[in-house]
Design a protein around this nucleic acid. Structure first.
Length: 405
DNA sequence: TCTGGGGTCCTAGGACCC
DNA sequence: TCTGGGGTCCTAGGACCC
């Protein structure tokens, strides 16, 4: 079973504020060069879409109401909904803040007679408690359940039964498959493949040649086959990287100023890493230049695992210092990977112990009084902007120790 | 005032080791 | 008158998801 909240951020806002109900609204980020994150169905009628700038959105619809995203609200709602899902099965895979897969195979055997009963019960409870609707897809596997969920929106319920699969796949455009993006679609088109039926019949050998390991998966997907299990959050709690990036309020060429942003990003990454209890030994720097199309990343592996902001900053700077900039910088990103979950620390040296205590003290103050209440002196001014994680892909769970946001 | 931000996984080439 | 083969780790970039 796949469950997808309809226009999640916008719906939560409309549920919270009756003045917004029935109106075209767009949820946006707080920073200067933000884009539209989600739109209400009323706004979609005007052609307002995710990814548009504020300016483009307003062009589509003059009455469009902009609401700045409130991450706490969405996380709280999401967590509540996931808790409800667990009433039906322990096998709940949180796919994003507004999507989840449920394996209800055993629930059907022992408790509920039909999947529709689970779906309807869940829909009603979500509506009742949170005032929002969702679309549910039910099928023999995750691939098809997700497909089914997409078929009716909003407030849909779609079932794909085993005997219907072949007929459905025959005409289905490949792009509708989760995992086939723009590029893969184009490359498949070049092979004369446009529908899942064609994809399923295409020789696997050639697909493997052209697409590598994905080739086999594509072939299976064309046939509607998917063996991947529903992985509940408890088993999927290992983060693999922690990063932050930000589009600057305006493009910046001055290297000292860029360094200040890198310090801010390093602190954001370090804080989150420490909160999760992880350290990393690879630091990456990501840069997008003013023309938007030029972007690149550089990484550096270290001998030690680190999560202190100043150490991350030091590594980021050493990468940055080797970069020549041909244009002003539009976006900066810092990420740590090759993570390790830290055991309780024992310190060999007094200096290390003091550093850890300092980080801990700063984290405690920031937890209590808000991000950047206390921080390094050399941060950019106006730094409170853009320090909140607002993104539909943000997982409220599926990550260890994350009940803080 | 054009174009966000969080991730995951895969690939290909080079360095290095035995 | 010739230069193997297996493996791991690292880096950079690309595709995809929400």
């Amino acid at each position: 079973m796949h469950i997808d909240m309809n226009a999640f951020f916008a719906s939560v806002e409309q549920a919270a504020n009756r003045d917004l109900r029935g109106k075209p609204i767009a949820v946006i980020g707080a920073s200067a060069r933000t884009v539209i994150l989600t739109t209400s169905y009323e706004a979609r009628k005007y052609g307002v879409k995710t990814g548009m700038t504020i300016w483009q959105g307003r062009k589509q619809c003059q009455r469009l109401i902009f609401v700045v995203a409130d991450n706490r609200k969405y996380t709280r709602t999401s967590t509540g909904i996931v808790a409800m899902m667990r009433d039906y099965t322990p096998l709940v895979e949180v796919f994003s803040i507004d999507e989840a897969f449920l394996d209800v195979t055993n629930s059907l055997k022992y408790i509920y007679r039909a999947p529709e009963l689970i779906a309807c019960s869940l829909k009603a409870r979500i509506k009742e408690s949170f005032g929002i609707t969702c679309s549910i897809g039910i099928a023999p596997n995750k691939l098809l359940a997700k497909l089914a969920g997409e078929m009716q929106k909003p407030d849909g319920l779609t079932i794909i039964r085993p005997e219907e699969i072949d007929r459905l796949m025959e005409k289905l455009p490949i792009r509708d498959l989760c995992g086939v993006g723009k590029r893969t679609e184009r490359r498949l088109n070049e092979l004369g493949i446009h529908t899942c039926g064609q994809l399923g019949r295409f020789p696997v050998k050639i697909l493997r040649q052209k697409f590598g390991i994905i080739g086999e998966r594509l072939s299976q997907m064309g046939k509607g086959i998917d063996d991947s299990p529903v992985v509940p959050a408890e088993e999927n709690d290992e983060v693999k990287s922690v990063g932050h990036s930000m589009t600057l309020r305006q493009d910046v060429s001055l290297r000292v100023e860029i360094r200040r942003y890198l310090l801010q990003l390093s602190e954001m990454v370090g804080r989150r890493a420490r909160r999760y209890g992880v350290s990393g030994r690879t630091v990456s720097l990501y840069i997008r230049l003013a023309d938007y199309y030029t972007s690149f990343s550089k990484q550096k592996s270290l001998r030690r695992y680190i999560n202190h902001s100043d150490e991350i900053y030091k590594a980021a700077i050493s990468i940055f210092d080797a970069v020549e900039l041909s244009q002003p910088v539009r976006l900066l990103g810092v990420r740590i990977s090759s993570l390790r979950y830290d055991p309780e620390q024992l310190f060999l040296f007094e200096e290390e112990r003091r550093k850890a205590l300092l980080a801990k003290a700063m984290d405690t103050i920031n937890d209590r009084f808000g991000e950047f209440s206390i921080s390094f002196a050399d941060l950019p001014t106006n730094r409170k902007q853009g320090c909140h994680v607002i993104s539909p892909a943000w997982r409220p769970e599926g990550i260890r120790n994350i009940n803080v946001l």
